[in-house]
């Protein structure tokens, strides 16, 4: 896990992007995460996480369609890069290994 530096919140956002696939744009991500985490998130926190991960090469993006609801402004659809998939997989592996080696009283 060298040079990846994926924060906890960033990881959640990244996974949501993967889950949402073609629907992965700002508000939708926010909505999905809010319902899963059961808490309110600000546009700012989502956007800054997205921008940071794009900079680090976890995400790429392109403009999608506009809608009246958005005041004629286009969406930006995010997609996880192969690198991101690899990193996610790595993290999951590390975690499950750690879980496996934990004493049983914590596990239950």
């Amino acid at each position: 896990m060298k040079k990846t530096k994926l924060g906890e919140f960033e990881e959640l956002v990244l996974m949501t992007v993967v889950v949402l696939q073609a629907d992965a744009y700002g508000v939708e991500i926010k909505r999905e995460l809010e319902s899963r985490l059961n808490e309110t998130l600000s546009v700012g926190s989502i956007q800054s996480a997205l921008k940071r991960m794009e900079e680090k090469g976890f995400l790429k993006s392109e403009f999608g369609e506009a809608s009246q609801k958005r005041g004629g402004k286009r969406k930006r659809i995010y997609q996880a890069t192969p690198h991101a998939h690899k990193v996610l997989q790595e993290m999951k592996d590390v975690r499950s290994q750690l879980w496996a080696s934990m004493p049983s009283m914590v596990r239950s």
Binding site: V27, K30, V43, G44, K69, R70, G71, K73, K75
Partner: peptide
């Protein structure tokens, strides 16, 4: 363009739930 669009969408959604005043307040906070 992207972020303003996001904000607009959130605003419109809030309008369905809350009063105009509250929706505006949320917008400002965002």
């Amino acid at each position: 363009e992207e972020i303003e669009g996001d904000l607009n969408e959130t605003f419109e959604e809030n309008l369905e739930q809350y009063s105009v005043k509250k929706a505006r307040k949320i917008y400002n906070r965002e």
